[in-house]
Design a protein around this nucleic acid. Structure first.
Lengths: 383, 383
DNA sequence: CTGTTAGCGCGTTCAC
DNA sequence: GTGAACGCGCTAACAG
């Protein structure tokens, strides 16, 4: 049947313990025996039994990455960056099996995967994607994360706000604590680790985007161009990302004394179809919009398509702005004005934090700033 | 410490074996005790130790998906489909941890991941992505796959041609017929499996695309429109996918008596930058091209960008065609004429095949057909 | 139906 | 420097 450590030991004329030592190179072994063992391993095509090692060593070389949807470029780029940072650092030896799990945006599957990863005793887990603000789910998630931490798994939240303090406990009120602003954030996250039990694992870390600030500068750009009737296609309700971007948009409006007409905001999924439908709806409500800010670039594309169907030109008749600066945005016609999120950097840092290859910030939170990218889809109104 | 099966057993007043039985529900257990056990599990927040189960049961609930690049929509869609089919079928219980591994297109990492998955005793593995035609790598890959099969892991190749025969039965001559040119098959895999066929595991299965047929019909569409000077931006050399698409293109040319001018074909990566550079090069060589077929949709976008820079309109001055029909293709301006590959179906079937939820075809190969999608980026020349 | 008894393959003290 | 035990947490035969 399958060849085991013992087989290799026999072939090399040594004990199993010795083989284990050369394989893990964590103990001095004579050069000669080492070679003999390695040769035996090669000849027998021995492949270590991961589960057995994990059981004995109480730790696995598996690390997980949770994403909403691998087919979405946003997560694809993020996952790719995280993974390249997590798996082999080039030097063979410390090989990790970095795996990405697709939650499909479903809170249940998110929880399920977390359990599965826990079951596998994963060494680290990076959780990406906008968080649902449903208190029940937040609490369940916090509980799972707390247990993972207690089990020694380093958890890193990426592209989402820190979990509310008090792990298993009341996620109720504190869940609303703002994050993007940077200032009030500390209060919510700092107390994460103390918890109650003596089982203090590594405290969860966070890499977050400044969604609010980005959205704010985007809308201010539009206002500066002269726009006053700005439509807003927001993401799904109940997601922190959606809320933060919307807050930034409204903050910009407020700053410039522009009334925030409720009818000018519609919610929808983070996909093209949603943008398409939303734009039609927005136009139905107010034909004189001069600009539209979309939930993200993909949505913006749908908005542009709908606008064209209405015989409206972008940006001559209506300006359109996206968010994220996904790869295809520069190729759109017209090229999309958007807010660039440092996705690759975020993924890389989350990966390094997870692997302990980068010192964790004192408050456990890394806030990445966004950058306004002005291209061709926005222009002064009525030009 | 972490709570174990024994703890649960004690709490429920039963033996460990009984707890194991209710958890795996693979053996009759009295309703009453079952409830007691379940309650204890909940109260203790027990999470099974995967490695330990895998070790004892000699099988893990881990299944892998290998892709070239998760950030590439082609693989993202494929991976998403495979994964949704692999993980929970909805009915909770048979939860599998479907994980996707990013090879970054590197043959070495592909091999490494295969080993890691083998080490984890994965239950199934789906290998996607164009295969390198380098004999050495093909041989190494065949060897790894053979060992995986021998270890009981079901391997499914998706979007790539069957492995050359030699490792397992069933992949004989007929498998080569539809897709592969069928040349280097035998020679390469000679040294593949030293020890032999005694340990016959599940034979590798394949889900392949009709790249050649798709490419052929695409070029024929262009020819039918009246194009004669057609540029071709092919993918990286040495990949089966690249070769098949190129062969289809040339077959169409030959059928209509059009000379295949070597200078009209340039190779490049499957990304936008490559298409951009290639189009510039093509134009430098021959300013009078009236059409360009790109390696895939992403490349086509780059081609369009370069064309615009040259002051050429698409499709009035130059027609452009893509391949794959990725989600963004319909949104491009002009909407891309392309060849639709049933990515979702391919992924789903590969997933089902891997999980044994779909009967394997006699010859082990499922060939999916492609479909020409005519949109706005192609038109008669000189119009 | 349920408890008992053995390992699964490997890491890790210990002695030598 | 190396080998001999023991046990990680769980499943899989066997009894009963």
């Amino acid at each position: 049947m399958t060849v085991t450590l013992a087989d290799v030991a026999a072939r090399a004329g040594v004990s199993a313990a010795t083989v284990s030592r050369v394989l893990n190179s964590n103990y001095p072994v004579a050069e000669a025996t080492r070679d003999r063992v390695l040769r035996a391993v090669a000849e027998l095509e021995y492949v270590a039994n991961g589960p057995a090692s994990a059981l004995a060593a109480a730790t696995s070389d598996l690390v997980g990455i949770l994403v909403n949807d691998v087919a979405d470029p946003f997560f694809g780029v993020l996952a790719s960056a995280v993974q390249s940072e997590m798996s082999g650092d080039g030097t063979s030896g410390g090989e990790k099996l970095a795996v990405v799990c697709n939650t499909g945006g479903s809170p249940e599957r998110e929880l399920t995967y977390l359990t599965l990863l826990h079951r596998q005793r994963a060494g680290a887990v990076v959780l990406t994607g906008g968080a649902t603000e449903d208190p029940a789910h937040t609490a369940a998630l916090a509980a799972r994360v707390a247990r993972l931490s207690a089990a020694g798994t380093q958890v890193v939240l990426c592209g989402r706000p820190p979990l509310p303090a008090g792990a298993t406990a009341g996620a109720g009120g504190s869940a609303e604590a703002p994050v993007a602003g940077g200032r009030a954030a500390g209060a919510a996250s700092a107390a994460a680790s103390p918890a109650s039990a003596a089982d203090a694992g590594p405290a969860p870390l966070t890499v977050a985007f400044d969604n609010r600030g980005g959205a704010r500068s985007l809308t201010e750009h539009l206002v500066a161009l002269g726009h006053r009737r700005i439509g807003c296609v927001a993401g799904p309700e109940g997601l922190t990302t959606t809320r933060h971007r919307l807050e930034g948009h409204r903050a910009a409006l407020a700053t410039h004394g522009i009334e925030d007409v409720p009818g000018r905001t519609v919610h929808g999924a983070y996909d093209r179809a949603s943008g398409y439908a939303a734009a039609h709806e927005l136009l139905r409500r107010d034909e004189d919009l001069t600009a539209v800010v979309a939930a993200n670039d993909t949505v913006a594309l749908g908005v542009c398509a709908a606008l064209r169907e209405h015989g409206l030109r972008v940006p001559e008749d209506v300006s359109v702005a996206g968010f994220d600066d996904l790869p295809f945005s520069m190729d759109a016609v017209p090229a999309l004005t958007t807010v660039r999120l440092p996705l690759t950097e975020a993924g890389a840092r989350a990966g390094r934090l997870a692997m302990g290859r980068e010192p964790a910030p004192a408050d456990g939170v890394v806030l990445l700033s966004s950058e306004l990218v002005i291209r061709k889809s926005t222009a002064p109104p009525y030009s």
